[in-house]
């Protein structure tokens, strides 16, 4: 399963809701405002760093770039992908759930 999270964890609880229910080994893609959860040095970073032990966590580079962040701004263990990678992930992970 690939879980999609598109909201900032500072404003909405969708990422926490996802982390509580995602099966171990699932993929989680942070995109749109969800990319703020992937940034190093925030109060949310430890949560994500810890979650990389249980899940494959990805962040969408074009959404990072649009918000003024380079790929090197993200937490170690979170993989940066582009839209081609997004498409590939949906295929690799077999089903897709959006947390809205």
């Amino acid at each position: 399963m690939l879980h999609l999270v598109n909201k900032s964890p500072f404003e909405r609880t969708t990422l926490e809701a996802c982390l509580r229910r995602a099966a171990p080994g699932s993929g989680i893609l942070l995109y749109e405002d969800g990319v703020y959860a992937a940034l190093a040095g925030t109060s949310f970073a430890p949560t994500i760093a810890n979650a990389t032990n249980a899940f494959d966590i990805f962040v969408l580079a074009p959404d990072l770039a649009a918000r003024g962040y380079a790929p090197d701004a993200v937490i170690d263990g979170v993989r940066t992908i582009d839209y081609d990678g997004f498409v590939d992930l949906t295929i690799e992970k077999q089903s897709v759930q959006s947390w809205l």
Binding site: M1, R21, A23, S26, S95, V96, W99
Partner: peptide, 17 residues
């Protein structure tokens, strides 16, 4: 919650809003 995880993970199509 654990059963919810299993339920979600066993689906082919998930439609959320």
């Amino acid at each position: 919650r654990k059963q919810m995880t299993e339920l979600m993970d066993s689906m082919d199509v998930v439609l959320s809003a």
